[in-house]
Simulated scan of single mutants.
Amino acid sequence: MDSITAVPPALWCQGFFLGAAGGILALQVLPRDVRSTLMDYGARRPSDGSSSGGQKKTKAALLTSLASYGQVPHSWFWHFYVLSVSWSAFWAWQYVQRGAVMAALAEAQARSTAASPSMELGRVFLAWTMLAVQGSRRLYECFFVTKPGHTPMLFVHWALALAFYTALNISVWIEGSGTILESWKSQQPTVLLTSRVPSALAIFFAAWVKQNECHRYLAGLKKYTFPSGGVFSYLVCPHYTCECVIYLAISFMAAPPGSLLNTSVLCGLAFVAVNLGATAHGTKQWYAQKFGAEQVAGRWRMIPFVF
Rank of each mutant, 00 (worst) to 15 (best):
A43S: 14
F291H: 14
G268S: 04
L38Y: 05
A219Y: 06
T263K: 07
Y240C: 06
K210R: 10
G178Y: 00
S233N: 11
P304W: 02
G53M: 09
F305Y: 14
C242H: 01
V191L: 11
L30S: 12
F271C: 08
K59S: 12
L83E: 09
S118E: 10
A288M: 04
V124E: 03
F77M: 12
S84I: 01
W78N: 13
R35S: 13
Y217C: 06
Q55I: 15
L18C: 15
M130K: 05
F125Q: 08
Q188N: 15
H281Q: 13
A132T: 12
T146M: 12
V231C: 07
Q97Y: 06
A103D: 15
I250Y: 00
F291T: 03
K290D: 00
L38P: 00
P238Y: 06
T279E: 02
G268Y: 04
S251R: 00
A293H: 09
A6G: 10
K290I: 00
L139P: 01
A167K: 01
I170V: 15
E175N: 07
F155P: 00
A278M: 13
L269T: 06
L131N: 04
M39R: 03
Y240V: 10
G23E: 11
A254V: 01
N275H: 03
A127M: 03
F204R: 00
S86N: 08
S233D: 08
L131A: 12
E294C: 11
F155N: 08
V274E: 08
F271W: 14
Y240D: 11
A100C: 10
T194K: 01
H157K: 05
F305L: 14
A110L: 02
S47L: 13
E182L: 10
K223C: 09
E182A: 15
W78H: 12
H79A: 13
G178L: 01
S259Q: 08
P9F: 02
T190M: 02
M302C: 05
M130A: 13
G15C: 10
V236G: 02
L105W: 13
A108M: 13
L66Q: 07
I180A: 05
N169E: 11
W93E: 09
A293W: 02
A127N: 07
R35V: 06
C214K: 04
S88T: 15
N212G: 14
L193T: 11
A67Y: 03
M302D: 04
V156C: 08
L181W: 03
T263I: 03
Q94G: 08
Y240H: 09
F232E: 02
L83H: 14
A161W: 00
V306N: 07
D2R: 11
F232Y: 14
A288N: 05
G42C: 09
E182M: 08
L30H: 07
M39H: 06
W184T: 09
L221Y: 05
K223A: 09
H150F: 09
Y224G: 04
V296W: 05
T5L: 15
V265A: 02
S116F: 05
L83C: 10
R301T: 08
K147P: 00
S186H: 13
C13H: 01
H74Y: 14
V101T: 14
G277R: 01
V296S: 12
K147H: 10
Q28R: 15
A115F: 07
Y247S: 03
C237Y: 03
R35Q: 14
Y217M: 09
F143R: 07
T58S: 13
T146K: 10
S75Q: 08
R98F: 04
V245C: 11
L266T: 15
W208H: 15
Q188P: 01
F144K: 14
Y240E: 05
